[in-house]
Design a protein around this nucleic acid. Structure first.
Lengths: 217, 217
DNA sequence: TTATAAAAAACGTTCGTTCGTTTTTATAAC
DNA sequence: GTTATAAAAACGAACGAACGTTTTTTATAA
């Protein structure tokens, strides 16, 4: 048989990893056997080792690729919103986090595997210097708000945005993976609005809030 | 050999579960073998089955006991603070969450195991109707604030407190388990203050904030 | 002596991985 | 246009080790 093209190899790996991912997030790393992966991917047990040296290699490849996807999605979200702190944009941002978590909650399950089995070795860079990174991305937005004295005393917009960013993720992860079941006592859409309102009040000076008020929408 | 007293049995189980917990949070459920647990607890493999029917029974017992501990600790924290939303009390509350996570981060690792392997069956009740529960506990405090018109328009104090409560936990879990490494760009003590300030601004009317201002401390 | 705890041995499975074999197919030879 | 070749891919039996659990044996103390 002639050598497979690089694309064919990638395609086959994609197929295997799709199957393995399903099993890993259902049974954990050690709870998933190579035989199960092979069966789920409709591939022979031995052939798996033509593509991966070890079982851990499969998990690593899955996590690395998924991290790329998530980072791309996050970049897309951030590219779409130039001034995320504005109240209406905050709501839109929340909705996008909602969609991201709904479509890719599996990534966070993989992250919990990573936390449990590898001390979050693969995913920890997502949290390092988070505020600094967000500050760089929205530097113009944040400094403009500060220069205009729109921001409350003692509140750093970069920290404020990091906090609301993490809050949205945390909210939807609790709902999706931890059995929250409308844990705030309101539905998701209302929760997005409520959380946005809370942080708008937190970040903006009352006068600025007037300026950005909802009827501007 | 005479029958063990109930206390002796409980003591032995405590000893075994202490060992098993260490291993579960390090290698996950399926990554931990009964032989390893026996060795770690300095007990024979067969003897484990005099105390537990299955391996899963050990995990269940650990989680159930730990959940009791955490709920007790949370109750203690809430018993200590009658008016948690007041800015200074919010900081104190943050410090207590900091200590709780530092001393019992293992519980959240067990929760991630529960999420991955059992759909959070054991721990999900911690998140159900969270706002409602907090609202009941601090009903007097919240209604007093509302009656005094200390609260910002559209902000529900129960939801606000739930959000800051989750925010503190999320912050310290990211730091402890996810490799955050001062992810807000400031140290833990500063983070507590910053998060408290953010939520004080969010929840309280500016006039009320004056009333509760820091020089009251 | 006797009931029971603890230890040890054994059971049948399943694990991750290896490896010899078979199947496949682009290409060279006719 | 058919066939032979050869390299690569896919397969699946087999390996030794380890798994969770059961059964048997030994030690202990009233």
């Amino acid at each position: 048989m002639p050598k497979l093209t690089q694309e064919a190899i990638e395609g086959n790996k994609e197929h295997i990893e799709e199957a393995a991912k399903k099993l890993f997030i259902k049974h954990g790393f050690h709870g998933t056997s190579m035989r199960l992966i092979a069966a789920q991917a409709d591939v022979s047990l031995g052939n798996l080792y033509n593509y991966y040296k070890t079982k851990e290699d499969i998990l690593e490849s899955i996590i690395n690729k998924y991290e790329l996807i998530i980072n791309t999605k996050l970049k897309e979200i951030f590219d779409d919103i130039e001034e995320p702190l504005l109240p209406n944009n905050l709501i839109n941002f929340g909705k996008k986090v909602q969609i991201l978590v709904a479509e890719h909650y599996e990534f966070w399950l993989l992250m919990y595997i990573d936390v449990l089995e590898f001390e979050n070795r693969h995913c920890r860079k997502m949290f390092e210097n988070l505020t600094e990174k967000l500050n760089k991305r929205f530097y113009n937005h944040f400094t403009e708000l500060k220069d205009n004295k729109d921001i409350n005393n003692n509140v750093d917009p970069a920290i404020g945005f990091t906090v609301v960013y993490l809050q949205f993720f945390n909210y939807f992860l609790i709902e999706k993976l931890f059995g929250g079941n409308n844990h705030l006592g309101i539905n998701d859409d209302e929760a997005i609005v409520k959380i946005s309102e809370i942080f708008s009040r937190a970040i903006f000076h009352p006068n600025a809030l007037e300026k950005f008020s909802v009827n501007k929408q």
